[in-house]
Design a binder for these strands. Structure first.
Lengths: 329, 329
DNA sequence: GCGTCACGAGTAATCGATTACTCGACTCAA
DNA sequence: TTGAGTCGAGTAATCGATTACTCGTGACGC
């Protein structure tokens, strides 16, 4: 593969001049620069990234480590990050930690080793993973879930959204409201449960552990949980569901138990999936501004890359409740 | 950030020995190796990727360039690629070309510059983009869509699946069958249309351009197309839809036009989305083995990285028709 | 007892691009 | 005419890790 030396030789200049010409630096005779450029084109020269990065001690690559590529919420974030990054000439590499702290650590290691310019992370692991980054002053923005560490964060007011959704269910006349949320320790899962309890408490209802269940953020776990909840003698008559994959499981459970969505069991789920309005009745959802999360995160990251002394900020975006038929009797 | 020299100095050995110890090479006194390892741990040493890659002239990173991160079909492929890569110690970086040849080229450039070990590509652009890779003998596997170039490919027998799905609709008594597929020039879109026509021809029906529409592989385009098709005086009584995002648009159109799924308009869509069985009646689909595509692609890529002289192969996986209520009157 | 060999460890070259420093040529003003 | 200043281009150091080659030590065989 052609190197810059080959280009320089072919153009009859020194490597230094070739480098300057290729990078559009000020001080090169236009005639020489043209010779260099055409030599480069002829040879199909592509700069050697590792060599350049080694010398420059910096890269124009951002790592985006998300906890689930198959979750549309995270892929929307990805799109937001990417749009911003592209606009300023950065590339984004997406890594899938799969809610697995070990995989997360591996990708953080890769990010550090490749000396990426910055990292956007939806943290699944615990503090030690993140410390690897902060210890090296790698610019970092956490999305979706807060971090104890010193870092910028972009979050959603998920707790109050959960409260609002639950209050909505109460106002619609549902009485025994349950909640299916994600694993303990995942902040968003805990927040949604907390918001749910906030609403019950605010309306002077007793919160009962019998009506709350946890499962992986997936359809099958939610299915089991819903079957379990809805098979109780005094089953819940409404459910708050913590994301759209879980909503699939819940709706399957309703259908299996022959319960009517809305009429028998009201449902509000987090994440406005494209299919939400296709089910009958249409599904009420809490819509999260995923794309904006990514966008804001990328902007914060770019700012911090430019100036590492910036104070750390936490941006909280609003989720909005979209009521449809599934939360009305 | 600590370098290998710092580690060597701290352990009181030469950099060469430090390097050998850190890489677990044979010929190092265990005592020295232990000193090196503990020095490295103490300093929080992380190798400098660019330096290592520069010297080694190779990386343990695969690039996966897909045309739409928000399409579950592609994220399933991603998961397949990643599982295989992880198992053999490679990392995967995901790049989103967004069906945009220009973005695709940019990411291919990045892949070349970073000297990734190999590329898995769902090609959206035209030949020149890919030539950049083949000219440099970068191992390449094309997925989902064929490539004129010399490369391994992993495809789906999408044409015959489309034929089979259409034949199924015919056998269910639908008479005027339409097709909503993706943009011209995208092979899978063309194949699905071709398979659809194959079936019509095989049953001695006239294929009519009036019943075929193209749109972006998205819900909104398919919505328009469906509205358009179904507003005709002698509207189709069944539709073959080229992917699950489009299916969302089609179902929205049905609902808007007050047509009953199945009874008024039979539908079979490509991709078995998790929500397909939640709509009423459940949606019949052509299920593609996305995860396996990714898995096979990664295996082929690893094989070619190990031995570049391997003959090029094309693997065609089978899609399976899953009939549910939406294709029965 | 001496030469050979094996082995562990160090020295220094190397990967390719960038850039500090240097050098020569030329301009312009005194 | 000459010295200061400017500008363009080349030389070589540098980034950090790997590794070919070299060197010294000690074991072993003849």
């Amino acid at each position: 593969m052609a190197t810059i030396n080959d280009v320089a030789a072919k153009a009859g200049v020194s490597t230094a001049t070739a480098s300057r010409a290729l990078n559009g630096k000020s001080t090169v005779d236009p005639a020489l620069a043209a010779r260099v450029l055409s030599a480069a084109a002829e040879l199909g020269y592509q700069p050697n990234g590792p060599a350049r990065n080694l010398r420059r001690q910096e890269t124009a690559v951002l790592a985006l480590i998300i906890s689930d590529v198959e979750n549309p919420f995270f892929t929307s974030i990805a799109r937001g990050v990417e749009d911003v990054a592209q606009a300023v000439g950065y590339s984004v590499v997406l890594c899938n930690s799969d809610e697995n702290p070990e995989k997360e650590r591996r990708y953080i290691d890769v990010a550090i080793q490749e000396r990426v310019a910055g990292v956007v992370l939806s943290p699944t692991g615990t503090a030690p993973n993140v410390d690897l980054l902060t210890a090296r002053r790698t610019p970092l923005v956490a999305v979706d879930r807060p971090l104890p560490a010193a870092a910028d964060m972009v979050l959603v007011d998920t707790r109050s959204a959960a409260k609002q959704a639950t209050t909505h269910l109460i106002s619609q006349g549902y009485d025994r409201i349950g909640c299916i949320t994600g694993p303990a320790g995942i902040q968003t899962a805990d927040d949604r449960l907390a918001g749910y309890k906030d609403a019950l408490r605010a309306s002077k209802r007793r919160t009962s552990a019998r009506f709350a269940r946890r499962a992986e953020f997936r359809a099958d776990g939610a299915f089991e949980a819903a079957i379990d909840l809805l098979s109780q003698p005094d089953r819940p008559d409404a459910l708050l569901v913590a994301n759209s994959a879980m909503a699939v499981g819940v709706l399957e459970a309703l259908s299996k138990l022959d319960l009517r969505l809305g009429a028998d069991v009201g449902v509000v789920a987090f994440d406005d999936a494209p299919w939400a309005s296709l089910v009958d009745p249409p599904l009420s959802v809490v819509s999260q501004p995923a794309y904006d999360i990514g966008k804001v995160a990328a902007q914060l990251l770019m700012a911090r890359i430019a100036d590492s002394s910036l104070p750390y900020t936490t941006t909280t975006l609003n989720a909005t409740l979209i009521t449809r038929g599934s939360s009305t009797r």
